[in-house]
């Protein structure tokens, strides 16, 4: 379960940990909790989100069109934690979002690359309408 997106814009790490602890104390069943940081968008450097993700159950990032090298770097950034790439990868024709939109072929390759690098979760979507 994710707290929300781009939390680093309005939540501190201390508040995030407090939320995580509170939820685990009160939830009736085990549940993995995360809260997406706004980095790194592009590139392999995940260092700005490391301490953020260390207080959560899984590490979560905003990636735009991640390559297999980016997936690999995200898994290495916080060793031992599952990774969720939590920006929806939409199949869409949008000038505004072409820097992060997908084609169906990119979706297929993304599935394979994110699996073959060790298993990164993603959000996929077909949004042509």
């Amino acid at each position: 379960m994710g707290y929300g997106f781009d939390l680093d814009e309005w939540v501190t790490e201390e508040e995030l940990k407090e939320w995580n602890d509170y939820m685990h104390e009160h939830m009736a069943w085990p549940h993995m909790l995360g809260g997406r940081h706004g980095d790194p968008n592009r590139g392999e450097d995940h260092s700005t989100a490391v301490s953020w993700n260390q207080v959560l159950d899984y590490a979560s990032y905003e990636h735009h069109q991640p390559t297999s090298e980016v997936y690999t770097a995200s898994l290495a950034a916080v060793p031992g934690k599952p990774v969720f790439s939590e920006d929806r990868f939409r199949i869409r024709q949008s000038e505004r979002y072409q820097f992060k939109d997908y084609t169906e072929e990119m979706t297929r390759r993304g599935l394979w690359q994110s699996t073959m690098t060790g298993g990164v979760a993603n959000i996929w979507g077909e949004a042509r309408w």
């Binding site: 169906e104 979706t107 297929r108 599935l111 077909e126 309408w129």
Partner: peptide
């Protein structure tokens, strides 16, 4: 909120 639509090549996902 924009809901996802069916994929044209859904068999790609099934193959994976």
């Amino acid at each position: 909120f924009n809901a996802s639509q069916p994929y044209d090549n859904f068999h790609w996902i099934k193959t994976w």
